[in-house]
Amino acid sequence: MKTNNVILRAVVKLVVFIILTLAVYLFLSGHHSPGGGFIGGLVVAAALVLLFVSFDIETVRGAIPFDFKKVAALGAFISVTTGFGSLLFGEPFLSQTFAYFDLPFFGETELTTVTIFEAGVALVVVGVVVTIILSIVEDV
């Protein structure tokens, strides 16, 4: 797809970072307020799709040199393997746990194993959505 739209590009350059920040916020806040792995991943994917739509693919590819299939595979791998972690502690497959820690800068923080699982989910979502869109758009 050829697009040549200066205003769009200028805005996109700025907006993408805002979107990505929002994505990170949504991802991390998922435990206690709306958000989570799916949404975080989707918003990242949406930001990337926005980039691909407004710039040509080669440019963006150069800037973000990931193979998104591998990103997706890595995500699935993380999600599945975290499930086995609980087996080591004699718990059923995929049991999650959480604990509170006193960390410098953050104060009392809740750390959860769900976060790792959700990170996997997010990676899969990003990888798959971008792979799907790119596959179609590139195949000319």
Binding site: F38, L42, V125, V128, V129, I132, S135, I136
Partner: peptide, 20 residues
């Protein structure tokens, strides 16, 4: 529904690509 939304996206994508 949250699960379903994402899955139905995947289904739509597969169908679209199949059709294409």
């Amino acid at each position: 529904i949250l699960t379903s939304i994402v899955i139905s996206f995947a289904v739509t994508a597969i169908l679209l690509v199949l059709a294409y």
